[in-house]
C-alpha cells in the first residue's frame, strides 16, 4: 500500500513539476487530505464504488473549485476516480516529502490544539532544523485531541510535548 501511495505521489509530483507548482500542489494536497480525515461522510462518499466515478469527480471539483489550483483539483479528481481516495493521506504525505527533498529539506508534521502564528511556525521550523541538523519544513495540523502544546513528527522521530502526552504519562505513573 505504501509502495502504491509512493507511485501515485511520484505521478502527482511529476505533473506538478511540469506545471512548475510542486510546492503549492503538495501543500494543497496535504490540506485536502487533512480535510478528508476530518469528515467521515465525505471520505465514505468518495470511496463508495457504488457511486459512479464521474459523480465522485464532480463532487471533488465542486468542493475544490476556486479554493485550490487546477492541478491539485485534477490530481485529487484522478485519485478519487481511480478508487484510491482512502490512500489520499499517504499520497499527500509522500508528495510533501518529495517536494521537501527537491528543495533539500525534511518535512515535520506538527499537530497542535490551536493554529500556530507565523512567528511560532518560523521559530518552530528553525528549532526543529537546529535539532535535526537539516532544514525542516513544517506542516501544521490543528488537532484538538492534543489538548495543548505540540507533537512534531519527522520521519520516524516523534517529539511529543503535548498536554495529552503528559497526562498519559501521569496516568501511567498511577
Amino acid at each position: 500500500m505504501a509502495e502504491r501511495s509512493a507511485s501515485y505521489a511520484d505521478a502527482v509530483a511529476a505533473v506538478a513539476r511540469a506545471e512548475g507548482n510542486l510546492d503549492l500542489v503538495s501543500d494543497e494536497l496535504f490540506r485536502v487530505a487533512r480535510a478528508l480525515e476530518g469528515s467521515d461522510e465525505l471520505r465514505m462518499t468518495l470511496s463508495d464504488r457504488q457511486i459512479p466515478a464521474a459523480r465522485r469527480q464532480q463532487i471533488v471539483e465542486d468542493l475544490l473549485g476556486g479554493h485550490a489550483s487546477d492541478t491539485t483539483t485534477a490530481m485529487v479528481s484522478m485519485i478519487v476516480a481511480a478508487g484510491r481516495s482512502t490512500d489520499l493521506a499517504g499520497i499527500a504525505q509522500e508528495a510533501v516529502e518529495l517536494n521537501a527533498r527537491d528543495r533539500g529539506r525534511s518535512v515535520a508534521e506538527v499537530r497542535s490544539a490551536v493554529a500556530l502564528t507565523e512567528d511560532q511556525a518560523e521559530r518552530l521550523a528553525a528549532a526543529l532544523s537546529a535539532a535535526t541538523g537539516h532544514r525542516v519544513d513544517i506542516k501544521v495540523i490543528v488537532d484538538p485531541s492534543v489538548m495543548g502544546g505540540v507533537v512534531a513528527t519527522i520521519g520516524d522521530e516523534v517529539i511529543d510535548g503535548s498536554v495529552r502526552h503528559r497526562l498519559s504519562q501521569l496516568r501511567d505513573t498511577f
Binding site: A113, V114, T117, L124, A127, G148, V150, V163
Partner: peptide, 19 residues
C-alpha cells in the same frame, strides 16, 4: 487550556525546549 495565552505559552515552551 481554554485561555489562549496558556496555549501560546505551551507552544512557546515547546519551541524553547526543542531549541
Amino acid at each position: 487550556l481554554e485561555d489562549p495565552e496558556m496555549q501560546r505559552q505551551l507552544i512557546d515552551d515547546y519551541i524553547a525546549r526543542v531549541g
